[in-house]
Every structure is written in C-alpha cells, then in structure tokens.
Design a protein around this nucleic acid. Sequence first.
DNA 1: ATCCCACTTGCGACTGTGTCGCATATATCT
DNA 2: AGATATATGCGACACAGTCGCAAGTGGGAT
Lengths: 167, 167
Amino acid sequence: MAAAKSPTKTPTKTQAQGAQTYGAERLSAAVGELRAQGTRITDARVAILEALSATDAHLSADDIAHAVNGLQPRVHRATVYRTLESLVTAGLVAHTHLGHGNAVYHLTTVPHAHCQCQRCESIIDVPRTLLRGVSSRLLEDYGFNLDTGHSALLGLCKRCAEVGDMR
Amino acid sequence: MAAAKSPTKTPTKTQAQGAQTYGAERLSAAVGELRAQGTRITDARVAILEALSATDAHLSADDIAHAVNGLQPRVHRATVYRTLESLVTAGLVAHTHLGHGNAVYHLTTVPHAHCQCQRCESIIDVPRTLLRGVSSRLLEDYGFNLDTGHSALLGLCKRCAEVGDMR
DNA sequence: ATCCCACTTGCGACTGTGTCGCATATATCT
DNA sequence: AGATATATGCGACACAGTCGCAAGTGGGAT
C-alpha cells in the first residue's frame, strides 16, 4: 500500500540527529541497492532495513520482528525470517551464529568478527584481520575457506573471567 | 539404526578390532573417572559413555539418544540431555556448537577445534594450536578468554569451495 | 492510468532441539 | 537390608526456524 521510500531521505520523526541521519543514510543506501538488484521494495523489507539501520547492535530475528511490528503490525514472523534470508542473499545483511544457537543479524556495512561471552552473553566486535593468520593456515593446510565472522568465537569476557572461578 | 548420519567421520584410527579395544579403554577410563568424582554410575550414563567411546565422530544429542536406545531402550530423551550436561560438568565430555545451532558431543580425550562446511556440513578437526595466535591476541587486546573449540569455525571445505560458484 | 503476473506476504501448522516439574526408581552409604 | 539423596521416565512445554498454500501487491508492460 504505502509507496516505497524514495532515495531522498524521508525522516519520519525527528529524534537524535546524528544517529538518525546515520541510520537514514544506511537505510536509503540499502534500499537503493535492493532496487538496483531488481528486488521488490515492500513495506516489510523497508521496515526490517529500518530496524537494522537504526542500530549497531546485533538483533535476533525475534528482536527484529518486535521492532518491525512497531512500524508494520501485520508483518508476520515467517515474513521476517524469509526477508532476512533474502537480504542475506542480496548481500545487504549478515547473520552470525551465537553459541546457544540463535542467530543475530546486522547490516554488512562494516564486516567484523564476533566474540561472545558464554556467561553474560555479551558480544564483542573484533576486526576480521585478527583472524587472518588462522584463515590462511586453514586454507593452506586443509583447503578450508574460513568465513570470518559467520560464527562467534566463544569464551569468557574480561569481567566474567575475573569472577569466573566462583561459580 | 543407531548409526549417526554425520557426513564425515574422522578418518584417523583403524576401525573394527582396534576401535573396539580403543573404545573399551576410553569407556572404562571414563567410568573410573565418574566413580572417582562420586557421581553415580547408572545404566543411562554407561550407555551414553559407550556410545561416545565407540567413535571419534561428532554425535548430536539425537544421535546419542538413538544409539543409547539400542542398548537401553527405556532411556528417555530428557535423560540424555541431562546426562550429557552432567558429563560436561564432570569434564568428561565436551560439546561444540555448529553453525545451524545444534550441538555435537565428544569425549574430552583429545581436545581440538572444529571447522564446519556450511554447504555439506562436514566437520574437520584441527589442532587447537592453530588458534593460539588468535587466542593470545584476544586476551591481550580485549581481555577475552577464548574457549577454543567450543564453537565451530564456519566456511567452505575444499571440495565445496571448488564447485562453490555454481550455486 | 490501468492491467497483469510473478514475486511476496500472511497465516497456521509443523519440525526439531532443548528444558521443566513431578512422581518414581535406584545407586550408594551405613 | 534400610535409608536417602540423586537420577530417571514421562509428558508437557518453550523456543527457533520452516513450509504449503491462498491471497495480495509491486512494478514493468500496455
């Protein structure tokens, strides 16, 4: 029903300026890329991209479904999953598997790897270059092409490691 | 029936006779350790340790439940999960999170890290030393204590990478 | 501006993995 | 053998993700 947003930014509500423009930029870039690929621009897709553009945090599919339902109440869970998958295919979104199994999604604007604390479940973003050595070793020794950042490295964050022994 | 459908079994040890004694050794060692810790020795626990001792492959909880039911038909799914967890706590068993979310279990006799192919889902065991550099970097730069091998490194195995582009 | 159709969506049902509460059974200590 | 804390069996539940199908709609064609 509602027309897709035009490439020119259309701010809905004025809030924190900086983050808002940052998110708006990322959003319009993403929508433009979608259009360039010939994929349809739908309300559900725009809403999901909005949710992802507005934050640098890592959102689960459920988080996204909640956020999207604030904008487009009729969007179904299944649509969120399918849309996320197609956005991944389009190269706009990446998902990372965390330890417990559920995946988190983020825009591909800044590729990075992830460390997750097994106790407090917090996530630390680390540069992909940190895994460069491992990546080349795996390729040389096993012919294995590492997809950096597709699964989180598990362990204990600093804070939890310090109190770690008193379980 | 009880056979795991794991795509790859680690092609290390000779099977049949050799594996049999090898498994028996590992089994009695594990049971001894359980006893030493004061944990009760039950049919379910022995059956689960038998299943794990008999192979070097990576078994899912479901694989184990099937294998165990060949030995002790009355063992319930929930018991398998609870027992595996207590074996992990006891330090006899380790579990690894694969990409899709489900975990696989193996004895802790030979610690190692895992690479999993996202396409064919095969698992490659790699020595933990390969991650030593990353591990120390993470500790120095972020205070993060990497638990090597707790989550699989995802990517494409050699075979799948070669045909990778023709999706 | 309208039409048309393949692509998307909404919906509900379904699968698979893992957890929980509770009554019962049993491994181990005495 | 008896007592008792622990482990088990069982069914129900929770959660993440998927599927089939009918209905809706985005966007190029007319």
